[in-house]
């Protein structure tokens, strides 16, 4: 499942804030350890924030993600432009298949620009870590 959600509505206090969310299964040829999944989550969040800033975001309002598999759950997020990523969660056994959920909320970019920046960062990070999308969910 991927997509935008219209958070603007008719409320003027929401002006300029747009979001994009994506969720899908990922797989890896080799089992990935908990520390590998933590590094992946951190790289993904940091890469998404950088892409949004490069695209002209005025504020990285909140970018958050979680990675979940049979025995583990790791969540990561960042706010602002310092690119400090907080990664927490329950480490599990090494796995070859896991679910990724990403939500990007940005002030100062159009919803299409938020989508493009997020998808570009996902593609780059998957390539860097040698993961691939398994199936859309």
């Amino acid at each position: 499942m991927t997509g935008y959600i219209n958070i603007g509505g008719s409320n003027p206090v929401h002006d300029g804030i747009n979001s994009y969310g994506a969720a899908f299964m990922l797989c890896s040829a080799e089992p990935v350890s908990a520390s590998g999944l933590r590094k992946f989550s951190e790289a993904l969040i940091s890469g998404t924030a950088s892409a949004c800033i490069a695209a002209g975001a005025r504020d990285v309002s909140h970018i958050k993600a979680f990675v979940e598999h049979e025995s583990g759950f790791i969540h990561a997020d960042t706010v602002g432009d310092r690119l400090d990523v907080k990664v927490e969660g329950r480490d599990g056994d090494p796995t070859t298949r896991f679910r990724l959920v990403v939500n990007t909320v940005i002030f100062g970019l159009s919803d299409e620009a938020v989508r493009e920046a997020t998808e570009a960062a996902i593609a780059r990070t998957l390539s860097e870590f040698g993961f691939r999308r398994d199936e859309e969910q």
């Binding site: 935008y4 979001s19 958050k64 759950f73 969660g89 959920v101 909320v105």
Partner: peptide
């Protein structure tokens, strides 16, 4: 109530 097409916060709290 999460902003975004896919909820994250609720899942984290359930954990």
């Amino acid at each position: 109530n999460d902003v975004g097409a896919v909820p994250v916060d609720g899942k984290v709290m359930e954990e």
